[in-house]
Write a protein that binds this DNA or RNA. Structure first.
Lengths: 390, 390
DNA sequence: CTTGATAACTCAATTGGTTTGACTTAATCC
DNA sequence: GGATTAAGTCAAACCAATTGAGTTATCAAG
């Protein structure tokens, strides 16, 4: 095998790019800020920050957001991120549908769409996505600023692994370089990621994880996945498949079963079907949950210990600031689960000095992964990094 | 809470430091290399590499290691790392002993020592460590080059968590800032880490993980811990306690029990004691294993499925290049375990294009964690990073 | 044995970006 | 109304990487 690629060397221009990210990142987290404040937080000189801010204002990323009042000396002129300064296009590929979203820097959706497809045939899908982008650009409510790039979400795992051939995979895409394919057709930077990781990023860009930089996201797609954000960026593992929690054994009725067969939407619909309920959509599930349908409640009872087990593992292995649950389940059901899943006490996350709950419900809604695809791109622009996007 | 500290801004000097790390890191992995080769691999210009090499040679880090032969054009002058150019001091604190090691850049031990203590009283220990450093410097076989820093290993988890109060903790050190304490007494840069993480690093600096950059290390200390190296650096999680696998439930005799109570040295000695064998040392364990003592073999039978389960979780959550097992067990027993633990097929690590075994036995020996403490420092010098050490 | 191709490397000038230190401006405090 | 405090600007100095032209050493072909 060849040597693992080294991160690229650093020079003056890369330093600038990094420091720009530093400035933008600070403003994103702290809100409107003055030069001196950013300089203190980033370790740069005021002069450097000043130069960078000048550049960012000229390019439209930042706008002057008034002066600080009340302090002693000269009041600081503060700057904030102009949410409309850039957009990102998110694409989610499912076996039976293609979803897309155009979101701005603040994570607000300018346009979303969903097209059912009979098969996720690559040639066809690529065409379709190209059309969707055009449609998104012309139909979105506000005038669209520059598109920073596109994120593509498809079910993992990537590469041939022991988990290949499962239902969660996208047929017809094995061995294809989706990144290159979309990059060529859309003519922009493209990031490919699995659904759980993308969904995790959606919560950071415009959701409950806005203030967090290290957290884990339990994603209910067809199966169940785990997205991990560490230090503001996605943790991928050596081959991009970190977080494949679906096949990890979890306790069920005294024995062990893969988590995915207990606590996933697939498992839920199967259980409901056995009880004579065909629940195809999130709305169906929401109705059944509101009715406290016995089969639904029984599933919850069974899923709780398994999810508790999963949370236990995730907390002790990753030591995140919080665990978030989200995805293709009704918001009320998610909230109910986070409220009632027992949190193991033998956990490194069970600490006295916590400043946020151990378990949170995601807020990005049912198009989490699609938004997440776009959020990946937004996050890249707002987070300093010397490494290359992979 | 205050905002998370941003990584420091980047300037020309930090770029240089980063690029030096890039050069050293390449030479470390690839062995003696020429300027042009390093330039290609790092993305730097030959000129930049040339300047850096000049500096590194002048400072004694690199030495000229002959010319490449056989190629077309001008044969490259290659450079290699001078293992003797720097040393690191490693300290391991245990409840009943203090261990130390002085190792060089190649990971070779120049001096090791072990002092039994009745209690790991901070004041006393700090004194002792200071004496040990002096002894190490004067007693080591070769002339000691500059000491780059010290690594301190103590059992985790750090901070008050749901796992506090367990046997594995170091009494008297709760709430103490060990880093500051040792930094003052030793008057050098100090890194504090838990045993599993340090042990993992030992395998990278001078062990079976030399060629790996992302792997997980199952460490048999008193309990069992997990160290994770990702992209050449330790993965700590948000609060430094990632990898606390000991309390994760694992299958045992049809039920579930914390892994630590099944597959740890503690569990093994307890099992042996029940069978009337007092095995205090690694040598005792080695003897019993060689005799295929029934209690030993029974413990192995019980531990195997639990360890298999642990490997399964680690592989699917971290997606490492390999899982390594090591620590305070006899080498032959470790080898036996890695040879016979069943590897789950439903794993992202079960891939056709692997280039190393999924499960490996550690080679750093019984002082793994102590060596690892020093290895932390070595690794820092040889791995490029813009972030601050935490 | 010469000549051309190839590749590693050096030299000097240029470039991009940060820092430093002196200075200006505007608010609060007394 | 003057002292103090803090934010910000300007211009010069500095650091390190890149660029492009040139040098040196080897292999291969005629």
């Amino acid at each position: 095998m060849s040597l693992p690629l080294l991160p690229p060397g650093s020079n003056a221009e890369r330093s600038r790019a990094y420091n720009r990210g530093l400035v933008l990142g600070h403003v994103r987290r702290a809100g409107a800020s003055g030069r001196a404040e950013i300089a203190r937080a980033s370790g740069l000189s005021t002069q450097a920050v000043s130069n960078i801010i000048g550049e960012l204002v000229a390019e439209g990323w930042l706008y002057e957001a008034g002066r600080r009042t009340g302090g002693r000396g000269l009041p600081a002129v503060t700057y904030a991120i102009d949410g409309a300064a850039g957009t990102a296009f998110g694409i989610e590929l499912r076996p039976n549908a293609v979803l897309c979203a155009l979101i701005d820097l603040d994570g607000r959706a300018l346009y979303t769409d969903r097209v059912a497809v009979s098969r996720a045939d690559p040639g066809h899908v690529v065409q379709l996505v190209s059309q969707l982008l055009e449609r998104a650009l012309s139909n979105s409510r506000t005038k669209v600023a520059r598109v920073l790039g596109a994120g593509v979400v498809m079910p993992g795992p990537f590469g041939k692994t022991g988990l290949s051939g499962f239902l969660t995979e996208l047929p017809g895409w094995e061995g294809l370089d989706a990144q290159a394919l979309f990059a060529e057709v859309l003519d922009m930077a493209v990031t490919v990621e699995n659904d759980a990781n993308a969904a995790a990023m959606a919560e950071r860009v415009s959701g409950v994880a806005a203030g967090l930089s290290s957290y884990a996201f339990l994603y209910f797609g067809t199966g169940i996945g785990l997205g991990l954000v560490s230090g503001g960026t996605i943790f991928r593992g050596a081959f991009g498949n970190a977080g494949e929690i679906g096949h990890v054994p979890a306790p069920f009725e005294g024995g062990l079963k893969p988590l995915e067969e207990i606590a996933s939407r697939m498992a839920l619909t199967t259980a409901l079907r056995r009880a004579g309920e065909a629940a195809e959509t999130v709305t169906d599930l929401d109705r059944l949950f509101e009715q406290r349908h016995p089969a639904m409640m029984a599933w919850i009872e069974g899923a709780r210990p398994a999810l508790s087990h999963a949370v236990h593992i995730v907390e002790n292995l990753y030591d995140p600031e919080a665990v978030i649950m989200g995805g293709a389940l009704p918001a009320r059901l998610l909230q109910h689960l986070t409220d009632t899943i027992p949190l193991p006490s033998l956990s490194v996350s069970n600490r006295a000095d916590r400043n946020c709950p151990r378990l949170l419900a995601g807020t990005a809604g049912r198009m989490t992964a699609t938004h997440g695809a776009a959020a990946l791109v937004i996050n890249q622009t707002l987070t300093p990094s010397l490494g290359l996007a992979t």
